[in-house]
Amino acid sequence: MNDNVDRKCEPCDRRTFLGGAISAASLTIAPGVTLFSIPSFARKPGERASNVNRWGLLIDINKCPDGCNECVKACHRENGVKSHGRPETDAKWIRKITVSGSGRRPEFEIPVMCQHCENPPCVDVCPTGASMKRADGIVLVDKHTCIGCRYCMIACPYKARSFVHEKTTGQRSFAPRGKGTVESCTLCVHRVDQNRLPACVERCQEKAGGAMIFGDINDKNSAISKALRKYPSKEIRGDLNLKLGVRYRGIP
């Protein structure tokens, strides 16, 4: 896994990605021992999400090229988020924002989405209880309860939430979205519950830099936990002590 995490930003095709991952993974398994467990993933129908899992993302900015927008496009395609040609009010679940760095990269772009805080300010301020955190750490909006007051948008330090200003069409069955409610990245909860990767991660691994790792931070053997242990990573505005699910590697 490590060599895969360490790789530079060359075009990452899926085969080499998997190849690297598999060779590293098999090193950790004792000879003759088959390690077969899907501990953190498979949940039976009818079973609740539990705090055994804590879903997270690790984004390696060194592998995230400036100008690449694949994760944003994949996210919006997956969740039926459409532009009305009005960038100021269009909903955005992921934004590529430009931040100032130092030395070799004086300026670079990072993708910012809902950071899935352990202590989410959006949940604290919500007057109706619509803004909520699932047991496995995914922060969501219950649009049946949302009154569109937008307190959560003000409370969020990451500007991660969007208000839906216009009538929606072409929603996906798993991502209902309607005018007058607030929405944000769901970490592709419908996919996670089906043992699949979030759309942005899948796209990034297949077609872009392979900068994103998704997994269970609580599971010590997951790729994301290993990468987090091996390399330094940062939370944006870590000083707020919100304990984010989304971590970044390579930001100063």
Binding site: L18, N195, N221, A223
Partner: peptide, 9 residues
């Protein structure tokens, strides 16, 4: 595609 973080081959 899921294999790497399931720790499987």
């Amino acid at each position: 595609i899921m294999l790497p973080f399931l720790g499987l081959t």
